[in-house]
């Protein structure tokens, strides 16, 4: 039983999942998500933080409508045009960079695509094929593709993972600038709290699998000017939540 509807008004993204089970090969059900609730106002960026393998990608797949086998309810922003950057770039290897964007966003104007490539530092790579790109470049192409569709909701799955520190920093700043400028409702998944603090207006801390939101932290705005002290406070808060969570073995809900 599930229901995807379009929510207007204040809460742009409203997720309330009672349970999501996978059916493993051995026949045992594997519970990935349980009683997971989160809401995100329109135009804001939410950052979902959780330990490796807790169910973050699963959550994004449900929101994206790629998996309808769950119990719960997900309300998407109005119109519900979706842009998504998957954990891997997932470009069409047989199409050039610019064609990859054109195919995913057939209604985008050529000059908008060119501007986007420019903004993401991809102007020189439009005619390259994906196999000629480094991971950092391929990620940016995937980001350009997601933005080209003018999404009402942008989903980013670990956009900075396995990039070296300098590249990750550059891409993080790029993403922060792009979603701020465009005021796109964005949900970013990450396992790195620092990344979440840098990118999110609201941080959702997930428990280990089965994932549940164990704490929701609103980051003071504007988040760009967040001082070191404030950031440390949030980190301490998160650490406390996870310690409490561990002592409960992730079973009960200390909220």
């Amino acid at each position: 039983m599930n229901d995807t509807s379009h929510a207007g008004g204040a809460a742009s993204l409203d997720v309330s999942i009672a349970s999501k089970d996978y059916h493993s090969a051995s026949g045992w059900p594997l519970r990935a998500l349980e009683d997971l609730r989160l809401t995100l106002p329109a135009g804001k960026a939410g950052a979902v933080v959780g330990p490796s393998g807790c169910g973050k990608t699963t959550l994004l797949r449900l929101i994206a409508g790629l998996d309808k086998d769950y119990v719960g309810r997900i309300a998407l922003p109005e119109h519900g045009r979706l842009g998504m950057v998957f954990q891997e770039p997932r470009l069409l290897p047989w199409r050039s960079v610019i064609d990859n964007i054109r195919i995913a966003a057939p209604h985008a104007r050529e000059e908008d695509i060119a501007a986007l490539l420019d903004e993401l530092g991809l102007a020189a790579h439009g005619s390259h094929f994906p196999r000629e790109l480094s991971l950092g470049l391929a990620r940016r192409v995937a980001l350009a593709r997601a933005l080209a569709v003018k999404p009402d909701l942008l989903l980013l799955d670990e956009p900075l993972v396995s990039l070296d520190a300098a590249l990750a920093e550059a891409l993080r700043e790029m993403i922060a600038r792009l979603i701020d400028e465009r005021r796109i409702t964005t949900l970013i998944v990450t396992h790195d709290l620092g990344e979440a603090i840098a990118l999110g207006d609201r941080i959702f801390l997930l428990s280990p699998r089965p994932a549940r939101v164990v704490a929701t932290i609103d980051v003071p705005t504007p988040r760009g000017q967040l001082g070191k002290e404030a950031a440390e406070k949030i980190e301490a808060q998160a650490r406390a939540v996870y310690q409490g969570e561990n002592s409960h073995q992730g079973k009960s809900s200390p909220r």
Partner: peptide, 24 residues
């Protein structure tokens, strides 16, 4: 299946699915 999910998210038209996803 990963590319298929991608095509689903970006709502590829049936023609694009055939020409740009399946045929290659």
């Amino acid at each position: 299946p990963h590319l298929e999910d991608m095509a689903e998210v970006f709502r590829f038209s049936p023609a694009a699915r055939f020409k740009d996803l399946v045929l290659p």
